[in-house]
C-alpha cells in the first residue's frame, strides 16, 4: 500500500492492523495521522455548554407545550381569533376605502388640478382654455 492509500484510509477512520503496520514504519504517514487528529477533533464542549445541555430537555418540553397551545387554541381562543379577524377585516375595509376614493378623485379632478397649476399668470377677467388638437373627420385633415 502506498502512502496515498494510507492517507485515504486514515481519513476514513481505518485503524486496521495493515494501516498500523504502515504507520509504524513511515514517519510521513505518522505526521499526517497526527495532523489529522487535530483537524478532525470535534468541537470541545465547555462547562457552560454542559450547563446549557442540562436544562435542554425541560426547556424544550415547555417550548413544545407552548407551541401546541398556540397551534390548538381553546374555544375562547377561537372566539377571540374570530373577533380579531372581524376587527381586522373591517379595519381593512375602512382603511381601503379612502385609498380607492383618492384614486377616483385623482382621475376625475386631475384636469382641474392641472389647469389650476398652470394658470398662475392669469388675471381675474381672463379665462384659461385648455388647447387640444381638434378631431377632424377622416379625409378632412387640413
Amino acid at each position: 500500500m502506498t502512502c496515498d492509500d494510507i492517507e485515504g484510509r486514515l481519513i476514513e477512520g481505518d485503524s486496521s492492523a495493515e494501516v498500523n503496520e504502515h504507520l509504524a514504519g513511515c514517519a510521513a504517514c505518522r505526521a499526517f495521522a497526527d495532523e489529522l487528529g487535530v483537524l478532525t477533533a470535534p468541537v470541545s464542549l465547555s462547562a457552560a455548554d454542559r450547563a446549557a445541555l442540562a436544562s435542554l430537555e425541560a426547556d424544550t418540553w415547555k417550548a413544545w407545550q407552548q407551541r401546541q397551545a398556540r397551534a390548538r387554541p381553546s374555544w375562547f381562543g377561537y372566539a377571540a381569533a374570530a373577533a380579531c379577524g372581524a376587527l381586522v377585516a373591517s379595519a381593512g375595509f375602512w382603511t381601503a376605502r379612502p385609498v380607492r376614493e383618492v384614486v377616483v378623485e385623482r382621475v376625475v379632478e386631475a384636469p382641474a388640478l392641472v389647469a389650476e397649476a398652470e394658470e398662475p399668470n392669469l388675471g381675474p377677467d381672463e379665462v384659461f382654455f385648455e388647447v387640444t388638437w381638434p378631431d377632424f373627420p377622416e379625409g378632412e385633415t387640413p
Binding site: 470535534p42 468541537v43 465547555s46 457552560a48 455548554d49 446549557a52 436544562s55 435542554l56 424544550t60
Partner: peptide, 20 residues
Amino acid sequence: VFAVVRRFASTPEEAKDLTQ
C-alpha cells in the same frame, strides 16, 4: 445535535436555542 450546531453558534445559549 448540540455538537453539530455548537460549531456554528457563538455562545452555548445560542447553541441551546438552535438545538431546541
